[in-house]
Design a binder for these strands. Structure first.
Lengths: 347, 347
DNA sequence: CTGAAAGCGCTTACAG
DNA sequence: CTGAAAGCGCTTACAG
């Protein structure tokens, strides 16, 4: 097979240099804006070059620059689709904080249960300088260590991971979920239901993907009210399913008196489902969510939930760029940003 | 236990070649899997090389390969955050269909009202070979033409754009929205409210961002029932706001008899809000959504909405890869995948 | 069957 | 103030 057929050649700095009658070095200095110590080019030269750029429609070739500079000026946020307010805020801050240093952001949305997706190529092949791995994303610890060893700057939101050339943000989710269960127990609930994410029930042994489920199950057992398997149902992913599953639970014999949903969204649907069946919340059914999204504070009754009190990732995101820009490899660091129990009216 | 920061040099193919006692050409042939016409390397050589790769922890450097190959084997999906089932399905198909040709996908989630975000660097500087620009994303027509002229393969979901070196998928949204308004008029509604996306009210003159609003307003005026400005409110973006705004509309003097929400999500919240005020749907308030998400078919009453009957983007996504892999530049093509009015019970 | 060598498009230390 | 030249890490036509 012959070389990629050049339909129409894309102009390079060499073409710009030729058109402007200067060397490629001059073009590069002008375009990169890095004069370093040298005195600047004359305004006339600069104008000629910029004019040639315009006329030829020149666009920088990233691969050439990245190869030479040994950095891509690009970071990646890895998360599981669909996104959520948490991820939206994270990407926003990654964009904003990185913009000052000339960094752009791309996203790598993964899907359920892809253990080592080919998508990780983007991280493995130095396509980006750094990555933030969002909470609940399935990337192996070994792989993270290898990526870090390969020079990628990595910050991972994970509750059970040792820093190993990368940084870890511990959300202390288990402690907050344990507190929620203890709270429900104190309110007299012994039949607690759980509206799970599909992935939790598909891989109940996976410590990352089933963290919420496991934490709640363990806390319930420890608090003397083990979860009845019949009260653990899927449906937190989609509104209609959350609604239907809740109604099924309530219509069955021996229904739960309290229901925890893996998502605030599902919890709100559960409240709706209960009301439509004529049950009061929290009187007949206490409902709690997980995530502390803004919806939870707006509905009536206010949603009792567990999550971050404020969506502010300045510390870990700043750390990411600090790691990227550091002249030498930084040791792994652990940060903590604990989830909290937020009690409102629904439970 | 402090980490050991190994400021170690990242191994290259040269290192692998040295360790295995072969040339870099051999390493490259083995790793890229492209033997082309040449006969394959001996199993012994291959094993030695792979062993060296393993031992050194070698990882391909993408920039080197991309520079040489003049292609990145990467495509980008551009859309506005937050994502939605539509975008989720699109990314899924871009991933799946591209995998066969060795392509990976990255995402470029934009935010409201960024006219020419620095994020576009990813498209401009040849970070990727191709891009799909999702419906409602704010990228200028000029910029698209320039990107296409620069060799980027682009497929844009847009209803009012001429193909110009890139392909356009026309969803015919305006026609479907006009049909929805006509349908409501036939059912006797003359006071039609609109629950808008924030961005629509912020930039009502923007043809892309306010397409839904404008289409509905124009259709209503043409059908002899111009929208009352007091019945046009924001809130389709967030559940709690959709709920509150709907209740405000219903509590005010001269409330709407029909409400169209810019999102199915907002429409469902509107139904909830109406019920909580003791109004029946569609009796007291007809409610229609936009988007045809799966939630709409699951709730009671079923949601009348407008959108794609099926979430299948095989045709445009296949076209994207066809364009990328074509030996020469393909002319722009227009594709049509029309939205439809889906009548259920809510209106 | 394998290796030496050119070159993709940039950047930058260095010479002029 | 500007240019010639080396080299980043790959791939591949070509020679051996």
């Amino acid at each position: 097979m012959p070389d990629k057929p050049p339909a129409r050649k894309v102009p390079t700095q060499r073409d710009v240099a030729a058109a402007a009658g200067v060397s490629t070095a001059t073009v590069s200095y002008i375009l990169s804006g890095r004069r370093d110590r040298t005195t600047p080019v004359t305004p006339e030269t600069r104008a000629r070059v910029l004019h040639a750029v315009e006329r030829l429609g020149y666009r920088l070739n990233h691969s050439g620059r990245a190869l030479r500079r040994r950095s891509t000026e690009l970071v990646c946020v890895v998360y599981r689709m669909p996104d959520n307010p948490w991820v939206e805020r994270l990407t926003e801050q990654v964009q904003q904080i990185g913009a000052d240093s000339g960094y752009s952001m791309i996203a790598l949305p993964l899907r359920d249960r892809q253990p080592d997706p080919p998508a990780l190529r983007v991280l493995q092949e130095r396509y980006v300088d750094g990555a933030v791995v969002a909470n609940g994303t399935l990337v192996e610890a070994d792989e993270l260590a290898r990526l870090a060893a390969g020079g990628l700057s990595v910050v991972v939101f994970h509750d059970d991971l040792e820093p190993d050339g990368f940084d870890v943000v511990d959300l202390a989710q288990r402690a907050a979920l344990t507190e929620l269960v203890a709270y429900l127990r104190r309110r007299g609930h012994s039949r607690i239901g759980y509206l799970a994410h599909d992935v939790e029930l598909a891989a109940p042994d996976d410590a990352v993907q089933s963290l919420k489920y496991r934490s709640i199950a363990e806390a319930a057992a420890a608090a003397g009210a083990p979860l009845d398997p019949r009260l653990v149902v899927p449906g937190a992913d989609q509104r209609d399913r959350a609604y239907r599953e809740t109604q099924r639970l309530l219509a069955a014999d021996n229904p739960p008196t309290a229901l925890i949903s893996a998502s605030d969204r599902g919890a709100i649907d559960a409240i709706w489902a209960a009301r439509d069946l004529g049950r009061s919340v929290p009187g007949d059914l206490a409902v709690a969510g997980i995530g502390n999204t803004s919806e939870g504070s707006a509905i009536r009754p206010g949603l009792t939930t567990v999550g971050l009190p404020r969506l502010d990732f300045t510390v870990p995101v700043t750390r990411l760029y600090e790691r990227i820009l550091a002249p030498e490899r930084l040791p792994g660091r652990r940060m903590t940003q604990p989830w909290q129990l937020i009690v409102r009216e629904s439970a």
